[in-house]
């Protein structure tokens, strides 16, 4: 039997700043948020690591990429889920394994040398000042979709009351509710994935919603943040 063909390669680095989402949804969210808020991403390369299970290999393999040593800034976008400290600590460990600068706190810049690569970790849902809240990208998106479609939200509340939910965490609850919204609203593909659902063309998630303001402001200032002096 012939071996399976190798999967598609992630292209070489061609921009000064690299933004890495934990999953495809995170990366698509950043990409569409920047487009909606008119944040210049011409010098940003936005990629996804392929999910939680592949995050470690992705981060620890980054330095092997040609021209990675020319990259000025790396933003890693992860999810807090139900264990914010553990998830952040895992990303710190992946960075250590990859011999990359390791920020001590969320949203803090870390560098090995003053003019070297700046590494920042943003955990979702975004919390001002680098704090931590349980949840994920879905938690953030839910706020927007709830406000856009309150009537559907009421129906989901009713449905939620009819089904067993024992043992479901708050984060799982958020994911459940968002999935209900997306399935209800997107008729063509009830199983629409997050990476497509966040596209403005689908008109499912309002990326101008105020809940995204802080994330957008951070992304707008990211390039400057990387070039300002930081603790080495």
């Amino acid at each position: 039997m012939s071996p399976a063909p190798p999967p598609d390669r992630i292209p070489p680095i061609s921009r000064d700043f690299l933004i890495v989402g934990e999953g495809q949804g995170d990366a698509a969210f950043v990409r569409y948020l920047c487009a909606t808020r008119k944040i210049d991403i011409s010098n940003f390369q936005i990629e996804d690591a392929g999910g939680t299970g592949k995050f470690e290999a992705y981060i620890s393999g980054l330095r092997f990429r040609p021209k990675f040593d020319l990259t000025k800034g790396l933003l890693i976008v992860g999810d807090n889920d139900d264990s914010p400290d553990e998830n952040f600590s895992n990303i710190q460990n992946h960075l250590k394994k990859g011999k990359l600068p390791r920020p001590a706190q969320r949203l803090q810049v870390a560098k090995h040398t003053a003019d070297g690569l700046a590494v920042v970790v943003m955990m979702l849902p975004y919390t001002s000042g680098g704090g931590a809240t349980r949840g994920s990208l879905e938690t953030l998106l839910l706020k927007s979709v709830n406000d856009s479609y309150p009537a559907i939200g009421t129906c989901i509340d009713t449905y939620r009351g009819c089904i067993p939910a024992k043992g479901r965490t708050n984060n799982q609850e958020d994911k459940f509710r968002l999935r209900c919204f997306l399935t209800a609203l997107w008729v063509d593909e009830p199983n629409i994935s997050l990476q497509y659902a966040v596209s403005p063309s689908k008109e499912l998630i309002d990326l101008n919603h105020e809940c995204f303001n802080e994330v957008a402001a951070f992304l707008r200032g990211f390039a400057n943040l990387c070039t300002t002096p930081a603790r080495v």
């Binding site: 190798p6 999967p7 290999a57």
Partner: peptide
């Protein structure tokens, strides 16, 4: 000298 490239190859990075 970049060390063991397993993680990078596993992540489908172009490493050549």
């Amino acid at each position: 000298e970049l060390g063991d490239p397993s993680a990078a190859v596993e992540s489908n990075f172009e490493v050549r």
